[in-house]
Nucleic acid binder design. Structure first.
Lengths: 352, 352
DNA sequence: CCCTATAAATGGAACGTTCCAATAAATCAA
DNA sequence: TTGATTTATTGGAACGTTCCATTTATAGGG
């Protein structure tokens, strides 16, 4: 019986022979209602095809149960997994989060945030777009909306962050390369407008310095964080007078690009040039050769971010502790000619 | 200056020395307001840190500008791209769509749909989860919410569908294999609870029959639509007395699995066993060997779906034409030992 | 049988907007 | 000057809910 105009609690009330207040109480599962009455009301709800108007409710209720997840790049499986991790915990909390993609575009991000604010979100988990200005979240903060950053942080912000231990991951990976005997190393890809970049390069530098690599033997080449960027980085590096023999890549996409470019030049990734990735996406394991990479557990970080968010909402605060997630260097076949570990994946590292 | 209680149009009105109605008009960009007044109001809006309450507005306005996109699997880049295509269109229409992931779970999907309805969506684009029951969208339809299916359809539904020409794509791919001289062919992966599966298998069958392949020489093996599924299919096939020499795979993930399993057995994908994928995800091009696959242009389909949705909303209808998108067989290196086309990508086909 | 305590149900105001009808001010034609 | 017309602005009701303060019914104690 689809009536054109949508039914309200008044229609249900009439149908069930009670008052609108009673219907409201039933809707909220209040124990104040006599069970038989509740049954009667629920039947009426079913009969008239009623759909709850959350907008109207929120008008009165102070806060909504809507949580927004703002992701910088959904086509990157890495971030998609982050989103999925968050969804999992919200689901079990009975909340349906809304996702929006910013496609690494700060302007787009602005629109998305505005829209979510207007929608009256109870909280926001954000993986900020590259180039986000420090003031982008001012309005949200002013409005007292709880915010959590995931995977990425902003330079000078007091908003809590859930992110992997980039520094340590880069350190482990670099140490691994040095342990394989490499003495001239490169860091490929990424750009300095990302805090993550500085953390990873920082880990790379610290490992080099600590383990006795000369400053002139460490090479940092910025580039796109994509296959294309990886290809470009390798070209640049190999064009040098004294090229590096190994590279830590900003992420796995860059690493795939590097391997592709090596092949194109007739070089074999691994024996001829060692490459390590970062993020450990699913493809890393299935690549030829399988890519050694720093695993960051993005679904786990997503879950963590969601938990922090729920706690913030529950306690009505806008502050929370940062959380730096453990990383693991997953050793596969792409780095160094060490035949002992060839064809066998091993795990070392494991940060606090 | 962030006042704890959020500002309303009344606060702005007081601040600017006008009435709430004037503020409302300014907010809607009405031309009825004297420009100087509008300026004054806009300044007040800025000063008090006002955020528009869309929920309250929708209460009055009949319909919201919220559009929901319900995706069955966001970690699959194929569907993520679909979503991105849709977003692009909505963005340029000034709409921020909300995405939700159902993770191929009909129960989850039910929750998501309910939540979106309560939120008062103006329209819904859905890639339904596997195993969705025919009645899952009844309430939405009753409520008169415009719905479009993308990529997937439901068996007996009158909801408009935007999907690739699966039948023709499978036909082209199969014809290509037969053209390479293969005479015993398999279809790998997928399961019959998906309409897409029947379309693709249908195309495969038709090509075989039309081009003179004996029925006993065409093999259909169901399986998971993942790498793992592909591996399993190949094992099954090669264990047969008279194994096939080529396979069309349900999607690229299955194809990757098949290639992996071939390698593990010391066989070279291409020369030793031809494999064709479906969907043409980005990795297909970069794989070793590069995968021949049926390209379906998912962002394009997403855009199309979004356009159809906008038109439905605009015209207040709940009906629209189906749209079957063109497909292209992108020939790379993974099928058949034909050296002439080796290392060169070529495009054939191109459906209406 | 009355008074009080408890349980169940209810009416009204409020939430922040939009939109219509109405008013006030300014302009114009005669 | 007067009435008609146009231009800007405004108050009030309505949207669908929640929640508080009441009311009504039911039971218990003396």
């Amino acid at each position: 019986m689809a009536s054109r105009a949508k039914a309200t609690i008044f229609d249900i009330a009439r149908e069930a022979g009670v008052s609108k207040s009673t219907v409201s109480l039933v809707l909220q599962g209040s124990g104040l209602i006599r069970p038989e009455t509740a049954v009667k009301v629920r039947k009426a709800i079913e009969d008239v095809g009623y759909v709850y108007n959350r907008g109207a409710a929120n008008l009165r209720k102070a806060h909504s149960n809507v949580i927004g997840m703002v992701i910088n790049d959904l086509t990157n499986p890495f971030f998609a997994e982050l989103a999925v991790g968050m969804e999992r915990v919200f689901q079990s909390a009975g909340i349906v989060p809304f996702m929006a993609n910013t496609a690494e575009n700060p302007v787009r991000q602005e629109e998305v945030l505005k829209s979510l604010m207007e929608q009256g979100v109870a909280g926001l988990i954000v993986s900020p777009a590259r180039g986000t200005t420090p003031g982008a979240f001012r309005r949200l903060e002013m409005a007292g909306v709880p915010i959590v950053f995931a995977m990425r942080r902003l330079p000078e912000s007091r908003i809590p962050v859930i992110a992997p231990d980039n520094h340590r991951g880069a350190y482990f990976a670099t140490a691994h390369l040095i342990g394989k005997g490499h003495r001239r190393l490169a860091f490929f890809g990424g750009s300095s407008d990302l805090v993550v970049y500085h953390e990873r390069v920082g880990g790379f530098r610290e490992a080099c310095e600590t383990l006795g690599i000369d400053t002139r033997d460490m090479l940092v080449i910025e580039g796109e964080t994509s296959r294309k960027g990886g290809i470009a980085c390798l070209e640049t590096a190999l064009a040098m007078a004294e090229p590096p023999t190994a590279a830590l890549c900003f992420n796995d996409a860059v690493a795939f690009g590097v391997m592709l470019a090596l092949r194109k030049r007739g070089l074999e990734p691994g024996p001829d040039f060692a490459v390590v990735g970062f993020d450990d996406v699913i493809e890393a394991e299935h690549y030829m050769p399988a890519l050694t990479s720093v695993a960051v557990d993005s679904p786990g970080l997503g879950e963590r971010a969601a938990h922090v968010m729920l706690k913030m909402i529950q306690s009505g605060t806008t502050r929370a502790e940062d959380h730096i997630g453990a990383v693991n260097l997953v050793i596969r076949e792409s780095c160094g000619p060490d035949r002992r570990t060839r064809n066998r994946a091993a795990v070392v590292g494991g940060a606090a």
